[in-house]
Design a protein around this nucleic acid. Structure first.
Lengths: 181, 181
DNA sequence: CGTCGTTCTGTACGGCCGTACAGAACGGTG
DNA sequence: CACCGTTCTGTACGGCCGTACAGAACGACG
């Protein structure tokens, strides 16, 4: 490990390939062999670096962790301020947003304390803030519509520059969010 | 088959269970054994009624087929009229909308002429109409946001009455869609 | 009663998955 | 040179998946 350039490290190359494949096909639909062939290795080589498959997801999710806790612990005076922070978060971590929104923690209950548990709590918290306390049917529909718009828009436009997506998404989401009145 | 009550037919019970499980977990994540245990049968019994697993999806998708072709072939003078028709379609077939939007036809290319091919063409057509001809970055983001809001809102509020969801969703989606100006 | 079609069970197969483990290649260090 | 940790290969295992096939149960029909 004389050359410490992180971009050419095998671990980093695996992480990059995994991030892209997870974003395209989802976590469960991407096998270790898929990732391995994308990097030019065997699946056992990938498994050597990331022992359970979960570690791959965990390592990809790690950079977003602080932003997650910042998002759920901060208080926002304006509802629009929260939405803006949420959009910023989603756009910044758009390459792994599918892992957060869909893949990690499906119907099966992960053991308590696992990353899946944390992610689910995060999602519930986001939804609760969007829907507000004791939401009516229209409020529920509206909150889920905002969540869906964030995820889809961000995942399907990964080729666009971050700032462009952020701007357009903020406009669309805040319009949908404020459509109750 | 003396008693022709369709509600108590085994085929119908399998279809109902499959529709619910597909909506909750997705197509690929639901095994024949899951469906079988939900109905109280073995997976081979389910496979007897629906020989390839695809037929299950095909049979669930069939009722929406005419609405699909009606939606992509009709001309709408107003953009808002198209959006209203789209919302109506999505809400009416909300129990299978996940199959259409996500599951059928992922990255792997289905053989031409298969249901997956038709579904993908349908999705592309919907997106093209939402995004308009030669869409800019903001237009792309906005179109995908609308698609995502439709799917999420409809899937996550399956317990609410259809008309309520339709009303609220139409408001939210049209607000997001018309947010360009 | 004998035969048939329908419906379901039991068993088994091949394929893909994640994982485990032994060992080869190789540069660094004594 | 001898030793060692790191990195990767090859092989193999168990588990779950969809599927195939033989046969039991059973009502319908002659």
């Amino acid at each position: 490990m004389t050359t410490l350039e992180p971009g050419y490290d095998t671990r980093s190359r695996i992480l990059d390939a995994a991030r892209q494949l997870f974003a395209e096909r989802g976590y469960a639909a991407t096998s270790l062999a898929d990732i391995a062939s994308a990097v030019g290795l065997t699946k056992t080589a990938v498994a050597y670096h990331f022992h359970p498959k979960d570690r791959l997801a965990a390592e990809l999710l790690a950079p977003a962790a602080q932003d997650i806790v910042a998002l759920i612990e901060s208080e926002f005076d304006d509802e629009h301020a929260f939405l803006e922070a949420l959009v910023t978060f989603v756009v910044r971590h758009r390459t792994i947003i599918r892992l957060i929104m869909e893949d990690i923690g499906g119907a099966d209950s992960a053991p308590p304390g696992s990353p899946g548990e944390v992610i689910r709590a995060f999602r519930d918290c986001i939804y609760a803030r969007l829907a507000g306390p004791d939401p009516g049917p229209a409020g529920r529909v509206r909150a889920w519509a905002v969540v869906g718009s964030l995820q889809y828009a961000v995942v399907k436009t990964s080729d666009l520059p971050e700032e462009v997506v952020r701007e357009a998404l903020l406009t669309a989401a805040s319009a949908a969010y404020g459509s109750s009145a």
